[in-house]
Design a protein around this nucleic acid. Structure first.
Length: 308
DNA sequence: GTACAGGCAGTAT
DNA sequence: ATACTGCCTGTA
């Protein structure tokens, strides 16, 4: 079992509040702060350990969170089987070899919803800044190894904030959306435990009722925190990747020709086109489409020379 | 100064 | 269902 590569996961935009100090990674998981030491996290070492030796993946949590590595690193997924099933596709197969350690992490749903609501029309470093500001302002301070960390704020505390306070976190026009998410969760309209049990389509529909959550953001939340591994978020980058590698998936009618046209000219597609494209891709990759998405996403950005 | 960045909602057609 | 538009903020 090759351990997850934090660097890649952060660059692939699924984990925003992780930071590395020397050889140790620290991350925010809801009201927990996580810590991962890397001396034993070395590819060669990990590759020669036996597959069920999860002791190499020791993750610490403050306060305690039993077996957090199993939960957060998704050790309950049979990654080996998932990746080998996706390897039937030649393009994905190459990226799996190229980026060993790229994984999907399981995020705290509540934090994940806020994170991606902040993600619209901006970049990863900006998202990190917004979330850090929100945490510093509304989360709880924790001292770990002599460093200051802030837990992710509860929906209630975000809901108590004024739009002005949210604006001061650099959210801009997203402040309104963040507020509406906080309201939905705090009032119980949006029930995370229910979403976890719902099937993909139902949960997606529920999420998209919230102001500020569209197709792409809903799919990110479903994939990264609600165990819907068939979710395949499509943004401009994935759009370009599909155009480059899976042009052949769309060939039949005028509708699909229009999608191609849009993918070529900037990558923006309409909500209806998103539905068509998403359906075609998920039919092709199957129930673990989300894993394929992460590899394709990382690769297209990597080949474009993107750092963040 | 200008363009642009990992979407979304509102409006008109 | 699509086309078009505006949107906060920071960086190049």
């Amino acid at each position: 079992m090759i351990p997850p590569n934090f660097e890649m996961s952060i660059n692939s935009g699924q984990m925003f509040l992780w930071e590395k100090f020397n050889n140790t990674w620290y991350g925010v998981y809801g009201d927990h702060i996580l810590k991962f030491d890397t001396p034993n996290y070395n590819r060669q070492y990990a590759m020669i350990t036996s597959k069920n030796d999860e002791s190499t993946l020791k993750l610490l949590s403050f306060p305690e969170f039993k077996n957090c590595e199993r939960h957060i690193f998704r050790l309950d997924d049979n990654v080996r089987n998932i990746l080998s099933s996706l390897s039937k596709d030649r393009v994905v197969s190459e990226t799996i070899i190229k980026y060993p350690g790229l994984r999907i992490m399981r995020q705290d749903p509540h934090q994940c919803i806020f994170s991606f609501v902040c993600s619209s029309n901006t970049n990863i470093s900006m998202i990190r800044r917004m979330l850090k500001n929100l945490s510093r302002k509304f989360g709880n301070k924790m001292l770990i190894d002599g460093k200051e960390f802030y837990t992710f704020p509860s929906a209630e505390s975000v809901n108590r904030a004024t739009i002005g306070e949210l604006l001061s976190c650099g959210l801009g026009y997203r402040a309104k959306a963040v507020k509406s998410v906080a309201q939905s969760i705090a009032s119980g309209i949006l029930d995370i435990n229910l979403l976890l049990r719902d099937r993909y389509e139902v949960a997606k529909q529920e999420l998209m009722k919230i102001y500020g959550v569209g197709n792409k953001i809903a799919d990110c939340i479903l994939l990264f925190s609600l165990d819907k591994l068939e979710a395949f978020p499509i943004d401009v980058w994935i759009s370009r990747a599909i155009f480059r590698h899976y042009n052949w998936l769309l060939n039949n009618n005028n509708e699909e020709q229009d999608i191609k046209e849009n993918m070529l000219t900037g990558g923006k597609i309409t909500p209806y086109q998103y539905k068509i494209l998403s359906g075609a891709i998920r039919d092709y990759f199957g129930r673990y489409s989300g894993y394929a998405q992460q590899y394709l996403f990382y690769d297209i950005r990597h080949s474009a020379g993107k750092k963040w």
